[in-house]
Simulated assay, not measured.
Amino acid sequence: MSSSELVLGDAHVAADFRTFTARARANGDGAMRLQASGTVLAAYVCTLSAAALGESTPTVLGLRTMPLAEQASVDITVGLGSVADRLARLRDDTVFTVPTVPVTENWAGVLPPRSGWVQAGTVSTTLLEEAAHSGIRKVAELIPDRAGAPVVNSARGAVWGQPLPGVPAGLPAGAAFGALSLGFLVPGEASALFTSGRWTRLSTSRGHILVRTAAVL
């Protein structure tokens, strides 16, 4: 039976959950997939994805895992707005009421594996920060005033789909954007890089960025 409430580990965990949700909403009022198993909550959000078939924008997900004070079982994709609303109204500072209205998102239907990851190296925080800021500037330069959605999506794909120079596993620049926008980059801490099939994972002490490459036909 799915749990209707999640008891977060403590008030600090609740604060981290609020921050993660707020940062995700800054990228667009999208969705979050909540998966709770035992005493661990995994919260997935999408920072980048292709808007149409054939676009080169990679699918970039952010994952934050958080401890729970009580056993729970949850697996639902819900709106970020509903998550933020319930985080603003926690009972006893830690009891989170799971939203009941699911939403449908293409990215949420295919999540990365939990095992089978192979380490492929590390990436410096400085490189990722520079790549993210450079990409943001390039996207802004490529998008004219009053540009339509196709132009915006094409610009985003051209910039964020490019592999980062000198980084193993063909990690796209979009991973750097995801890590920066979600606050996962830690000064002085290198990010660990892992691969598993079509997935690449960039991990820091603050969270994980997961990138799925397109299938080769």
Score class of each variant (00 low, 15 high):
Ser3Val: 02
Ser3Met: 01
Ser4His: 03
Val7Asp: 00
Leu8His: 03
Gly9Leu: 05
Ala11Thr: 15
His12Thr: 00
Val13Ser: 11
Val13Trp: 01
Val13Phe: 04
Ala14Ser: 14
Arg18Met: 13
Arg18Cys: 11
Arg18His: 11
Thr21Gly: 10
Arg23Lys: 09
Arg23Val: 03
Asn27Ala: 15
Asn27Glu: 12
Gly28Thr: 01
Gly28Leu: 09
Gly30Leu: 12
Ala31Gly: 07
Leu34Asp: 05
Ala36Asn: 09
Gly38His: 07
Leu41Gln: 03
Tyr44Gly: 09
Cys46Glu: 11
Ser49Pro: 00
Ser49Val: 13
Ala51Gly: 15
Ala51Asn: 11
Leu53Arg: 09
Gly54Arg: 06
Thr57Trp: 02
Pro58Thr: 02
Pro58Leu: 01
Val60His: 06
Val60Cys: 14
Leu61Gly: 02
Leu61Gln: 13
Arg64Pro: 01
Pro67Gly: 07
Leu68Trp: 01
Ala69Leu: 10
Gln71Gly: 06
Ala72Lys: 06
Val74Glu: 13
Ile76Thr: 14
Thr77Ser: 13
Val78His: 08
Val78Gln: 06
Val83Leu: 11
Ala84Glu: 14
Asp85Pro: 00
Arg86Ile: 08
Arg89Met: 05
Arg89Asn: 12
Asp92Gln: 07
Thr94Gly: 00
Val95Pro: 06
Thr97Gly: 11
Val98Trp: 12
Val98Tyr: 08
Pro99Gly: 06
Thr100Ser: 13
Val101Pro: 00
Thr104Cys: 00
Asn106His: 11
Asn106Tyr: 07
Ala108Ser: 15
Val110Asp: 13
Leu111Met: 14
Pro113Leu: 08
Arg114Asp: 02
Arg114Ile: 09
Arg114Trp: 08
Ser115Asn: 11
Ser115Trp: 02
Ser115Tyr: 04
Trp117Arg: 02
Trp117Ile: 03
Val118Asn: 05
Val118Met: 09
Gln119Leu: 02
Ala120Pro: 00
Gly121Asp: 01
Gly121Arg: 06
Ser124Phe: 04
Thr125Ser: 08
Leu127Ile: 08
Leu128Asp: 04
Glu129Met: 13
Glu130Met: 07
Ala131Met: 07
Ile136Thr: 14
Ala140His: 12
Ala140Asn: 15
Ala140Phe: 00
Ala140Arg: 15
Glu141Thr: 11
Arg146Cys: 08
Ala147Ser: 12
Ala147Tyr: 12
Ala149Thr: 15
Val151Arg: 12
Asn153Ala: 15
Asn153Trp: 14
Ala155Arg: 01
Arg156Ala: 12
Arg156Gln: 14
Ala158Lys: 15
Val159Thr: 04
Val159Leu: 05
Trp160Cys: 05
Gln162Tyr: 00
Pro163Gln: 03
Pro163Asp: 09
Pro165Phe: 00
Pro165Tyr: 05
Gly166Cys: 10
Gly166Ala: 09
Pro168Val: 11
Pro168Gln: 06
Ala169Lys: 05
Gly170Val: 10
Gly170Pro: 02
Gly170Thr: 00
Pro172Arg: 03
Ala173Ile: 14
Gly174Glu: 02
Ala175Val: 12
Phe177Leu: 15
Leu180Arg: 07
Phe184Val: 03
Ala190Leu: 01
Ala190Arg: 10
Ala192Ser: 13
Ala192Cys: 04
Leu193Ala: 01
Leu193Thr: 01
Leu193Pro: 05
Thr195Leu: 01
Thr195Asn: 07
Trp199Pro: 02
Arg201Thr: 02
Arg206Gln: 14
Gly207Gln: 03
Val211Asp: 05
Thr213Trp: 06
Ala214Cys: 07
Ala215Lys: 02
Ala215Met: 08
Val216Phe: 07
Leu217Gly: 12
